[in-house]
Nucleic acid binder design. Structure first.
Lengths: 327, 327
DNA sequence: TTGAAAGCGCTAACAT
DNA sequence: ATGTTAGCGCTTTCAA
């Protein structure tokens, strides 16, 4: 077995209680004693057993994160930031992948509950009521989902989509197609909301297509429909769909941005690597991830009266797939 | 506080020991009693406290995984499989990101050690001796790294690279450039090993360039050098570099695959989405991830006499960037 | 400022 | 087949 607090106590010629105090409440022990204890601890390579500590303090020093898909760079971006911020705060992180299954999401949170102080639930597909239920079993912070009473780290996709339309309109586009992602997803609803506001403001024509699968194939399928609608610009739900659109357009001999402008959403790595490079909206995944952890940590020692929802700004990245329409 | 084993015991009119047995060793308790206990447990929504259990059994029911970069789809692919397989076996998983820092790798494993039954260490940058040291603190399984005495899940990159050369030679290429990744990385060494074997076998000319940064920019830089060397094919260390090569070649008006063939390695999503689609080698990340967990679980109840190293096969994916050379 | 002792939730002897 | 009891490693009263 590993080295325990008792080994340290023996070596430092003090009681286990003193060792414990030296480690967790330094002010309660004489500096001299403290140094002796610390020395003994490092000499033995002592690492407190967090499970044992948690048993008594009721805090585990762990947080959990549940994501819909670990193959999606959007969520791993969040994960990376969550893990980094958590480590900084001396928390370890559990991950779980729900595989886009709402039922699994709830199950996973339940399973984690006993081992963590709280969990970050990313873009859940759960109904509001189920999210509430889950928020009852452990401290919850939502990412990209809004629910009164539950803290949330949000990204302003509506604003990003608004910027996309502003951009296209400024270029002179007057008839624009939007390729919807999954109707029920919060992301699509938000993006659509920003779109609608902007479209109404500018008084331009919107051709609302879909929903399509938020994948390359969805883009392939959508491209032909958008073309048939004779719009000068195509706004895709996300980058992957946009890449599908680009591919199909190329196959049909339609030039981008010559004949039609195309935009994506997310700013995945390869949006900048394809040619022409894709005009898109960058999501502040890292910032949102950090914020989520901060919210969780704050929530843990708050009286739970107000649940903040913090919005991180998106950013329009103008690249090569948008120009003024031909006239 | 949550519901404990005592609450269940009281409700089922038995002792805590019986509850414990009913849950963990059903055969030791009368079926009738067992049902009563189980009923009480579900009614109360009882979930055993794993930390408390671990304190006495010495097993945590957790495993850890340490990766160099959570933004790299290669590692998140592994992670996804690891988490899926672990969950299946009723293990929860801790993740940590070392940010490509060998020192951090070692630290992270140490930090996790107390909370896990073992850890999967992915493609560590650590020296052999340091990996050994780390293997002493907890049960370790290596991914894409070979070290006698330590179980490992490997991917046959050497074989994959060999297949690349076979393919190019079959097309008629006789003078090939290899763009090295980081010299010290196990991956580059393995890929290079396969390359050398194949090159020697076929007796073709190899122009060995680099090392380059395994990024898009590295590819941009490498492209000009490869062109100057007048080879008919360019074999990149990985897909991202290959995409950089493609971009630079296009800028210089060099046609792919017309003027020169290009191959990547890894089969990232966008390798199939760019145009022409990239000929590359698919890494069996999911399989290796599952294998790593299996090895770890086996290792935990083995006598540690033999440490298996299991190799998963890579696969050459022929797409649009390779054709016979111009003559 | 320090030590002795109780106990967190659970399992594993040891009894019965 | 079931109950009693002693810890697992740690923190936290309570006393000294």
């Amino acid at each position: 077995m590993a080295v325990t607090i008792r080994d340290v106590a023996r070596r430092a010629h003090v009681s286990v209680a003193t060792v414990s105090r030296a480690l967790t409440s330094p002010e309660l022990v004489r500096p001299e004693t403290r140094t002796r204890v610390l020395a003994a601890a490092t000499e033995l390579g002592y690492q407190p057993n967090r499970a044992a500590r948690g048993l008594i303090t009721g805090k585990t020093g762990n947080i959990g994160i549940v994501v819909p898909d670990l193959d999606n760079p959007f969520f791993t971006g969040v994960l990376k930031a969550v893990q980094a911020r958590a480590m900084q705060a001396d928390y370890a992180v559990f991950v779980a992948d729900s595989d886009e299954d709402p039922v699994a999401e709830a199950k996973l949170v339940h399973a984690m509950a006993k081992q963590v102080d709280g969990v970050v639930l990313c873009a859940p597909g759960l109904e509001d009521s189920q999210v509430r239920e889950v928020a009852g079993v452990t401290s919850l912070v939502l990412l990209n989902r809004r629910l009164p009473g539950v803290p949330a780290a949000l990204m302003d996709s509506a604003g990003g989509m608004h910027a996309v339309i502003d951009h296209l309109v400024a270029l002179g586009h007057r008839r624009i197609a939007y390729l919807n992602g999954p109707r029920t997803s919060w992301s699509n609803q938000e993006r659509r909301r920003g779109l609608m506001t902007a479209v109404a403001k500018h008084g331009v024509d919107l051709v609302d297509l879909g929903p399509f699968a938020p994948r390359f194939e969805g883009g392939l399928q959508a491209a032909d429909l958008a073309l048939a609608a004779a719009t000068t610009a195509i706004v895709a739900y996300n980058d992957i769909m946009a890449l599908g659109v680009l591919a199909r357009l190329r196959d049909r001999g339609v030039s981008v941005p010559g004949d039609v402008s195309v935009t994506g959403f997310d700013d995945l790595t390869y949006a900048s690597l394809c040619s022409p490079a894709l005009t898109t909206v960058a999501m502040p995944v890292a910032q949102a991830g950090r914020t989520a952890v901060n919210l969780l940590l704050d929530w843990l020692d708050s009286d739970h009266t107000d649940a903040p929802q913090i919005m991180a700004e998106t950013q329009l990245i103008v690249r090569g797939t948008t120009t003024p329409p031909k006239r």
